[in-house]
Amino acid sequence: MMDQHEDPKFEQWLKDAAKSYHSPVPTPSEEMWKRIETARRSKRVIELRPWMRWVVAAAAVLILGIGIGRWSANQASAPAATSTAPAGTQVANEIDSLANVAYQVAATQYLSRTEAFLTSFRADANRSANTARLARQARELLATTQLMLDSPAADNPRLRSLLEDLELVLMQISLLNPVQDGHDRDLITQGMNQTNVLPKLRSAIPAGPVPVRRTEGAL
């Protein structure tokens, strides 16, 4: 039995009319494939085979066990007055560890914000968005980028290369002229495509909810 809301004439008309909605352009498969290859090469993820996963899991359990054992031994045997040096070292290590986690959270949040900003910039590249506002946001992100370039994070060659690419793009956006920016925007977008900055940026951001994933079990 036909539902009272069904109307085959309307449905057919709607299907035909909706073909014009976001009608796709020809698939740029070559361009996309090149970027996929580049992004995957830059990831250099070590694939763990099933047996390797068991080895890694066993090693993790072993390390955890040793850690718990040492910690409980320290708690039970170290007299407070005579153990200032080891306790101090332990506190320093814990502070280092917390600082490292805090740094990772900040870095991940920065990368996520930059990704959202650049994705939106590229999508809006041909529209009349507010150039002054974009430039202001780019300047804020640029300041963070430059701080990161001066931090220990930049010791990692891959991250350093990504930060340098981001610094260049953000600097260009921060200098956009509100009066005549169409051509400049095109050039920036072309540059972003050529350097594959967005795929590289995405591959540097860990999957999952950002702050939670990085701080699980640590804070």
């Binding site: 796709p24 352009v25 740029p28 361009e31 996309m32 970027r35 996929i36 992004a39 995957r40 990831k43 994705t119 590229r122 999508a123 590249a125 977008t189 967005l198 795929p199 995405r202 591959s203």
Partner: peptide, 13 residues
Amino acid sequence: DALAQDFTQETFI
């Protein structure tokens, strides 16, 4: 187009 390309690449990666 730009977003669709980004999403397609991310899907295959």
